[in-house]
Design a protein around this nucleic acid. Sequence first.
DNA 1: CATTCGTGGCA
DNA 2: TTGCCAAGAAT
Length: 333
Amino acid sequence: MPARSSTSASATPDVLSLRSALLGWYAAHQRQLPWRQDRDPYRVWVSEIMLQQTRVAAVLEHYRLFLEAFPTVAALAAAPEQHVLALWSGLGYYRRARMLHQAAKLVVAQFLGRIPTDLDSIRALPGVGRYTAAAIASIAYGLRAAVVDGNVERVLSRLDGLSRPDAAVWRRAAELLDPLHPGDWNQAMMELGATVCTPQNPQCLVCPVHGWCRAPGAETRRPQPARKRLQLTCALIKRRRGFCLVKRPPDAAQMPGMWELPEVVPSDRQTPICLVRHSITDTNYEVHVVSVPIKALTLLGPQPAWLCFSSWELWSLPLTGVTRKILRKLAIH
DNA sequence: CATTCGTGGCA
DNA sequence: TTGCCAAGAAT
């Protein structure tokens, strides 16, 4: 991939050399990631949805299994939602999976299974906002749309030595965008933010654009919401047919339709099995897992019908993250 | 426009 | 152990 930058008339020599420096660095140092194998719009799309607020390391395995199960838009559109959620299990932000599924059905129905090629139509897909639309358009189709994510915002604020309102950040990103390599430029900006221009301990000594930077390594901390702390007790109920799980109600605020261990009222008659710490958005949970004699079972609150699954069946369900963590810890496979 | 939605890894 | 996040979008 050439590290040339554009000779667009409006760009100053300074911007041209900045582009060249960053693109050259990206060509040499980019991570080899599965969604960079090609520019298949579907693969790019899935990766961008999975990467929303989620680290690369957490995405890799889910991405592999997801594309194995749903290699095309049509395959995804044809799948039952529970199957889609099962493959998303553990990634978090499950609404992303539902919207991706919904969007896939829409693409099949309205666009003959082809992901639209113009920015506005991409942006109109469920789950695709301003960032994701620009990412897909530039990476898959080479359209001149700049992205602004957390990385880009931090890189730009250090580069220019000032923080701007949102609208101005998008304008600045568009100004710097390399018109000849928009996809590589966008990914280079994000890659720099993710690996060099990090929030803490930025590696300014190896930064390819250090010479253009007004405020190298400037602090960019954001205020953090206070975490609540909650204890609860879940029951592992073993029966001949397997283990009992409950399905979260379809209208639940969090993780509707996903399966988990039933919550029970703590009591002395329960045998403690393990303790798991888990955080969900603004709450830190301490989950006590107990074994309960079936006769002494008292579920907490109105629990919908529960079902039993064999240990191998469990893992094809859309389990919540904490449930996966518990079952893994108890070596139930 | 402020809130809400998950999770795991690492300093 | 605890706190700090990470390639945002929808409402």
